[in-house]
Design a binder for these strands. Structure first.
Lengths: 189, 189
DNA sequence: ACCTGAACACCGTTCAAGT
DNA sequence: ACCTGAACACCGTTCAAGT
């Protein structure tokens, strides 16, 4: 008997789940449907994944773990770096809105894989002259703002609600980010 | 035959749902369980509520509609007003984390009941001297920041992840809000 | 080790029927 | 008008059995 297909892996399950939720929405991600998509029975998934919640959390974790950690130039300022990271994160969330909405925005930003990335950003801020306490606040503020903004953004896009003509999310996001950095700059030595 | 209990109302259903999700978590809010809680059969709920999603959305909408719109003094500055509104919203979200997590942070902030409140804040900002475009951006930034911050906050609280000692969410939130207001102040005439 | 069939204890929702 | 019983088409998950 030849093995007719590669054995499943956790990553393969999560990748398929992401593709499914992206294309068909949260309702399509059921154990049975996802398994069928992988050419397997529902119960097989439990060998690679703890349960359904694990899939929901795992999708976002996988995407975040694949985000390039430092796209900025080597000699980039803290402002450039923070700007780039927040925009990367925003773009990721708007590219996969259902993935991030699926866990209710409820997952800690720093968890496991991305903890290292967080640490690196905080170090950048400290090296730039921010006291540790302020650097932590700025990190927390920046990430919460970015996440909250992306979530609201998608919610408006999906709702039938008409929005003022002057409304422009990209512009508002950039102004918000700039305002935050301007505001925190006063803590620099 | 005496009527033994008041007929149900949409509000009563939503209030009970809020109490249920607050005390027993999202898993407890099923049509059958909620109905039992109200001394009724599951199918009766459909006379007062469109479906389950309607309940999920309705809980948050009800809480928001009951938020006092202007707690600030009459002669309060735009900074005081924005500060108070954002803190009220933050406090509401942390008081009912499951309600707001249940809809994935995915509901537009301005919808129906709260649209008036939003309009009032934007007017405050315009009267203070912000051009309309900037006032809209500031509103969007402030509300997204507040929502995102509360969501992250609850996520950390619920996770077992240990967080740096210097981490203080209330302090960070207030600094973030101050930074945003400082940053936007440059657009004043 | 990895996959499966059958089963369990649930879901949300529809519909025709009751009062 | 409001409530219900029975039913439909699903769920996530466990478990013992297969290879």
């Amino acid at each position: 008997m030849v093995r007719v297909r590669e054995p499943l892996t956790r990553t393969a399950v999560l990748e398929r789940a992401i593709r499914l939720i992206d294309h068909e929405g949260p309702g399509a991600v059921t154990m049975r449907r996802l398994a069928a998509e992988l050419g397997v029975e529902a119960m097989s998934l439990y060998h690679h994944v703890k349960n359904k919640q694990d899939i929901l959390d795992g999708m976002a974790a996988l995407l975040i773990s694949r985000m390039p950690t430092l796209t900025s130039a080597d000699d980039a300022s803290w402002r450039e770096i923070l700007h780039d990271v927040c925009w990367s994160y925003r773009n990721l969330m708007t590219a996969h809105p259902n993935v991030f909405a699926a866990q209710g925005g409820g997952r800690p930003l720093i968890s496991g894989e991305d903890q290292l990335a967080a640490q690196r950003i905080i170090e950048v801020l400290e090296r730039a002259g921010f006291p540790l306490e302020i650097a932590l606040d700025l990190f927390q503020v920046g990430s919460s703002f970015t996440r909250g903004f992306a979530l609201s953004d998608v919610a408006y896009r999906d709702s039938e609600r008409t929005v003022p003509d002057e409304w422009d999310s990209d512009r508002a996001f950039d102004r918000g980010l700039t305002a935050i950095m301007d505001g925190f700059a006063r803590w620099l030595d």
